[in-house]
Design a protein around this nucleic acid. Structure first.
Lengths: 155, 155
DNA sequence: TGATAATAGTTGCAAATGAAACTATGTTGC
DNA sequence: GCAACATAGTTTCATTTGCAACTATTATCA
C-alpha cells in the first residue's frame, strides 16, 4: 500500500480543497480577477469587453456572431459588450454587404490604442503568473488543460 | 531557432485562445458548470450552497465565518447560501456558547442524505474528467495548479 | 410568389451579485 | 463601568446576469 499524494478521506466525504471543479474555479477567479481588475480600472473595460476587443484586434471585421464563436461568450453578452464598446467609441462597425442583419466590427483608433497598451500588460501578467514554471511545465500545463477541456466537453 | 509549442504571433497581438486567464476561465466554466448543473437540477442547489454543504459535511459545527474561510466565498455569499439552506431544511444551527452573534452550522438529516448522494456523484464526475490523464499527469496537474495559485496570489 | 422557417442581434424582466451600510453583540482600555 | 472599537452576520440598493421573447432580415421550398 503506497502513499497517496492526496489525503485519504473516507469515500463518503469530499475534500473541497482537493475537488477539481472547486480548485479550477478558485484558481480561475484569482488569475482572471487580478488581470481583469487592472484593465477594468485603467481602461474601464469589463472582461467581456476586453475579450471582444482582443478578438477584433486579431481578426478585424468579424461579426457579432463570429465574435461569439471565438470567445466562448454567448450572443447576449457579446451584444451588450459591443453596445458598450460603441458607446465608448472603442469599436466601429460597417454593415455586411448583402446582409443587413449583421455588421463587421472593427477597433476604432481609440480601441487600437487601448488594445496596444493592454496586450503587453496582459502578456506581462501571464509571464509573471507562469514564471514559477519551467519551460517543460508550461508545455505540460497546456497539454493538461487541453485534455481536461476535451474530457469535460465530451461528457 | 527552435520551434515553439504556441503559434508565434507578433508581440503586438494577443491570441485569446492561448491566454492563460482566458483558458482557465473557459475550462473552469465548463468543468464547474457541468457538475453544478447536475446538482442544481437534481437537488436544487447552487454552487454556493453545495460548497457550504461540502464543508459542513466534513466539518460539522463550523460558524458562517469559518465556512467563509474554507470556501473562498465572501461572507455575503455564505450568509445567503446559509439562509437558503435553512429554508430548505438542509442545515440546522445552534448558538455558539458564549457568543450570541454566531451559530454553529450542521447538516440536517435531509442535508446529510443529499450530501451522501452528491459526494459519489461529484467524485465520479471528477474521475471522468481526469480519466484522460495518467497518474503522473494528475500529480503534475496538482502541482501546477498549486504553483499557479501561489504565483497569482503573490502578485 | 408567398408562407414557413432560420438567423442576427436586441430587449425586457426576474433573479443573482457585490459593495457598503447596518444591527447586534463582544472586546479593550481607561 | 463605559466609550471606542472590533467582529458576526444581514440587509439594502444599484448593477449585472441569463433566459425567453422579440424585431428585422434572409433563406427555403411548395
Amino acid at each position: 500500500m503506497r502513499a497517496e499524494s492526496k489525503s485519504q478521506v473516507q469515500e463518503t466525504q469530499l475534500v473541497l480543497e482537493e475537488f477539481l471543479p472547486y480548485r479550477l474555479s478558485v484558481l480561475s477567479n484569482i488569475v482572471s480577477g487580478k488581470i481583469a481588475r487592472s484593465y477594468e480600472e485603467r481602461f474601464q473595460l469589463t472582461i467581456a469587453e476586453w475579450r471582444v476587443m482582443a478578438v477584433l484586434g486579431r481578426f478585424p471585421g468579424l461579426t457579432a456572431a463570429e465574435v461569439t464563436e471565438r470567445t466562448a461568450m454567448d450572443k447576449v453578452q457579446v451584444s451588450r459588450a459591443v453596445a458598450r464598446l460603441q458607446k465608448t467609441r472603442k469599436i466601429e462597425q460597417r454593415t455586411v454587404e448583402g446582409d443587413r442583419r449583421s455588421r463587421h466590427l472593427f477597433l476604432s483608433e481609440l480601441g487600437r490604442k487601448d488594445y496596444s497598451e493592454i496586450v503587453p500588460l496582459a502578456r506581462d501578467y501571464e509571464r509573471r503568473v507562469t514564471s514559477a514554471l519551467t519551460g517543460q511545465e508550461k508545455v505540460q500545463l497546456d497539454r493538461l488543460m487541453d485534455k481536461l477541456l476535451s474530457a469535460a466537453l465530451s461528457l
